[in-house]
Amino acid sequence: MNQSFARRYRLTKTDEFSSVFGFRRAIRGKWLMLHYQPRPEAHTEARLGLVVGKKQLKRAVDRNRVKRIVREQFRLRRPSLPAVDLVVRLATKPSPLDGKMLADDFLVLLDKLQRPRPKRET
């Protein structure tokens, strides 16, 4: 099984990020926010985009650490994910910056994404 994080598993263009944010579906965790959009039928793999702003984490080393942690968890779980575009961003500033805590929060968000939602009665 290929465990790489190849370019085809990433959101790279501004339009791709904009379409996911424009779809307006999100799941909020304790520290992370997961925006998602289903991919067209022709595509079968999940893709990931990351947004970690300077407002939440001033130091570049901290921003890069968050991205590295989320990317690694995505890479390990990618084969079991549905065909969706995901954008992960910090919802709140984690203090102190704990890698295990962020990884667990991201895995909880992925579990919520895969769980079928009950239909609302109108």
Rank of each mutant, 00 (worst) to 15 (best):
M1R: 10
M1A: 13
N2C: 01
Q3L: 13
A6W: 00
L11M: 07
K13W: 02
T14L: 11
T14S: 15
D15K: 12
E16S: 03
F17Y: 13
S19F: 00
F21T: 09
F21P: 05
G22Y: 02
F23T: 01
F23W: 05
F23R: 05
R25K: 15
R25Y: 03
A26I: 01
R28D: 13
G29H: 04
W31A: 06
W31Y: 15
L32P: 06
L32M: 09
M33L: 15
H35Q: 11
Q37D: 01
P38L: 01
A42N: 14
H43A: 12
T44A: 12
A46H: 04
L48C: 08
V51Y: 02
V51S: 09
V51G: 04
Q56A: 08
Q56L: 11
L57P: 09
L57I: 12
K58L: 10
R59E: 11
A60I: 08
D62F: 06
N64Y: 02
N64C: 07
N64P: 08
R65L: 12
K67C: 11
K67H: 06
R68A: 11
R75G: 09
L76Q: 14
L76W: 05
R78G: 00
S80A: 14
P82D: 09
P82K: 02
A83Y: 07
D85F: 03
V88G: 01
V88N: 02
V88E: 06
R89L: 14
L90W: 02
L90I: 07
K93V: 12
P96H: 01
G99D: 10
K100W: 10
F106N: 01
L107R: 13
L107N: 12
L109C: 07
D111V: 03
D111L: 04
D111H: 12
L113A: 03
R115N: 10
R117C: 03
P118V: 08
K119M: 10
R120C: 07
T122L: 11
